[in-house]
């Protein structure tokens, strides 16, 4: 299983801080599409992704145990 972390509006929309999902072998883009549909998530085209706390490209393939995070445009500072 893989942990998919959600933040900001995505967290509000999903009503969850994270989702657990079998994502091994899928790409980041696959997972994005999958959960977008299931949880009616919006603005995913401007959402960055991270694998294990490092920014990742859409075509990266997820390994066993990887922690994925979907990262809306940041607004710290």
């Amino acid at each position: 299983m893989n942990k998919i972390m959600l933040f900001a509006h995505l967290r509000d929309e999903a009503g969850a801080e994270y989702i657990e999902l079998q994502a091994e072998g899928k790409t980041v883009a696959d997972v994005k599409e999958l959960i977008a549909e299931k949880y009616n998530l919006t603005k995913l085209d401007s959402t960055m992704s991270a694998i294990n706390e490092e920014f990742a490209e859409d075509d990266e393939v997820i390994q066993k145990g990887d922690i994925i995070a979907f990262i809306p445009p940041v607004s710290g500072g």
């Binding site: 933040f7 900001a8 509000d12 401007s46 990262i71 940041v74 607004s75 710290g76 500072g77």
Partner: peptide, 18 residues
């Protein structure tokens, strides 16, 4: 840096983007 702010106004609230 993955940090987000949600602004709260008298008439609503919103997660602020970039």
């Amino acid at each position: 840096v993955p940090i987000w702010k949600k602004e709260h106004w008298e008439d609503g609230e919103e997660w602020i983007g970039n």
